[in-house]
């Protein structure tokens, strides 16, 4: 009887004390934001897309301000060269040099893939801070890429979010996510992002390679590598205007 009593009392206490060692989901996400968010960012990136039809490699230069504004110019291959994309608060515009047209991407077109990659325009457009869309809880400690990670589950608190649930594996020391999984409301895994090649850039930890996988596609995923990255750099005047697209 004594043995049983000790189990009844001790096991919940142990679980409670373990849970108390976990940081709150909110504090973790805030730390990740603080580490990764910069006021401005200029990057040169390479996107390697592996589809069932073959591989494609694109190069692009991107200017970013906060989470809301970004301007991307595609540099290669020749077919995409000169294509520009402008994302402002709630709108996304694309300039295609072959048609000499600036078109706003909206409605169901937002669900299309960006340049055939595993990313959709909708993914690009989602700039609402995570904590405004999700409730975060820390569930466990797991090892990813040989590093201790907090496993954080984000559950939507708003009805109109792109993914109902996300799971993040956050590096306990560097406060960067090493893996993100995005799920539908039914629990189906829709997308997966793996971050590797973590480097210290201007005092911040940053994953230089991200592999996106659209789990509904049969392709081999999209590897995005930052070739150059400048944080908090000065941006050209007027870059986030429609006139800069042409």
């Amino acid at each position: 009887m004594k043995r049983l009593l000790s189990w009844v009392v001790l096991v919940p206490l142990t679980i409670l004390s373990t849970a108390q060692q976990f940081p709150t989901g909110k504090s973790l996400i805030e730390k990740v934001d603080k580490n990764m968010s910069a006021n401005t960012r200029i990057s040169l990136s390479r996107m390697e897309i592996t589809t069932s039809r073959g591989n494609r490699t694109l190069e692009a230069k991107t200017w970013t301000e906060g989470d809301e504004k970004s301007f991307t110019e595609y540099l290669a291959p020749a077919r995409e060269k000169g294509t520009k994309m402008l994302k402002t608060d709630e709108q996304l515009w694309i300039f295609s040099p072959s048609t000499d047209r600036v078109i706003q991407i909206s409605g169901h077109m937002l669900r299309q893939s960006v340049m055939g990659s595993d990313l959709s325009y909708e993914d690009m457009m989602n700039d609402t801070p995570l904590l405004e869309q999700y409730a975060a809880t820390v569930d466990a400690v797991e090892i990813r890429d040989g590093r201790n990670c907090w496993v954080v589950t984000l559950t939507a608190v708003k009805p109109d979010v792109g993914y109902y649930m996300q799971k993040m594996w956050i590096d306990q020391e560097r406060y960067i996510p090493l893996q993100i999984e995005m799920y539908s409301k039914s629990g189906k895994l829709l997308k997966k992002i793996e971050m590797t090649d973590v480097k210290r850039i201007q005092g911040r930890w940053f994953p230089m390679t991200m592999v996106y996988r659209d789990m509904l596609k049969k392709g081999g995923g999209t590897r995005m590598t930052f070739l150059e990255l400048q944080l908090d750099a000065a941006l050209p005047d007027g870059i986030f205007t429609k006139s800069s697209l042409r």
Partner: peptide, 14 residues
């Protein structure tokens, strides 16, 4: 301008 998907899954304009 036609906006559609190319054979490679990316957006195509013509």
């Amino acid at each position: 301008t036609l906006i559609s998907s190319s054979m490679y899954g990316d957006m195509a304009m013509y």
